[in-house]
C-alpha cells in the first residue's frame, strides 16, 4: 500500500508536476461551476426544489456570517461560502472510488490556510487601512506585537494542520481497514468520514470568518470593546 502522505505526479508540464490533487480540484471546480450554472440559469420567484436548496445554502451561509460578524454578509459571502462548499465537496470526494480527496494532501489545506491568512490581511487593510491593520497587532499593548504576529501565523497554520490531519487520517484509516478486511467493512468508517468532512468544512469556514472578523474589528477606526 502506498502511503497517502506521498504524492506522485500524474504528469509533468515542463518542470511543473501535476499532482492528482490538482486534477481532482479541477474536476471539483468544473462540477461546482457546472452545477452553479445549471442552478442559476433559470432562477424564478417561485423556486424549484434545486433552487430552494441553493437558496437555503446561501441563506445559511449569510446567517452564519451575520451571526459571527454582525455585519452584512455580502462582502464575505463568496469567499467563506466557497471555502465551505469546496472543502465539503473535496472531503466527500473520497466516496468516488479511486479518488483521493484533495484535502488529504498537504498542499490543498496549506493553500486554503494561506488564502485565509491573506484574506485576513486583505479584509483588515480594506476596513482600517494599512496603519489600522498594523495597529491591530499592538492591541491590547505594544508588548503583544510579537505574540500577535506569531498568532496570526500559527492560527492559520493550525487550520491547515487540523483540516489536513482529520481528512488524511480518515483516508489513512479507511485505506488500512480496506486493505485488511472485507469489502463492506470500511463502510461505517466512510460514513464517519462523511461526518468528519462536513464538520471540518464547517469548522474551517467558521474559523476563517472569526479570524477575518477579528482582523476587521481590530483594524476598524473605533474597534469594538471585547
Amino acid at each position: 500500500m502506498d502511503s497517502p502522505l506521498l504524492s506522485v505526479p500524474l504528469f509533468m508540464v515542463g518542470p511543473v508536476p501535476i499532482m492528482p490533487a490538482v486534477v481532482t480540484t479541477w474536476a471539483i471546480m468544473a462540477a461546482l461551476v457546472l452545477a452553479a450554472g445549471l442552478l442559476t440559469r433559470r432562477l424564478t420567484l417561485v423556486p424549484s426544489a434545486a433552487q430552494a436548496a441553493a437558496e437555503l445554502l446561501v441563506a445559511a451561509v449569510d446567517r452564519q456570517i451575520r451571526d459571527v460578524t454582525g455585519a452584512p454578509p455580502a462582502p464575505f459571502r463568496a469567499f467563506i461560502g466557497t471555502l465551505f462548499v469546496f472543502i465539503l465537496v473535496a472531503n466527500w470526494s473520497s466516496l468516488v472510488p479511486g479518488v483521493t480527496p484533495p484535502t488529504a494532501s498537504m498542499e490543498t489545506p496549506a493553500a486554503l490556510a494561506a488564502l485565509v491568512f491573506l484574506s485576513i490581511i486583505f479584509f483588515g487593510i480594506r476596513e482600517g487601512g494599512v496603519g489600522g491593520f498594523l495597529r491591530g497587532f499592538a492591541l491590547p499593548n505594544p508588548v503583544m506585537i510579537p505574540l500577535n504576529m506569531l498568532e496570526s501565523i500559527t492560527r492559520s497554520f493550525s487550520m491547515f494542520v487540523r483540516l489536513f490531519g482529520n481528512v488524511m487520517s480518515g483516508v489513512f484509516v479507511i485505506a488500512i481497514v480496506g486493505s485488511l478486511a472485507a469489502l463492506l467493512v470500511p463502510v461505517p468508517l466512510m460514513a464517519l468520514d462523511l461526518l468528519t468532512g462536513a464538520v471540518q468544512a464547517y469548522i474551517f469556514a467558521v474559523l476563517s470568518m472569526v479570524f477575518i472578523t477579528s482582523a476587521v474589528e481590530k483594524g476598524a477606526p473605533h474597534p469594538k470593546e471585547p
Partner: peptide, 19 residues
C-alpha cells in the same frame, strides 16, 4: 501544487461568486 491549489481556489471563489 500549493500554488496551483491556491489559484484554483481563488478562481473557484470568483467563478462561484459570478455564477
Amino acid at each position: 501544487t500549493l500554488g496551483f491549489q491556491a489559484v484554483n481556489v481563488l478562481v473557484l471563489v470568483w467563478l462561484l461568486h459570478r455564477f
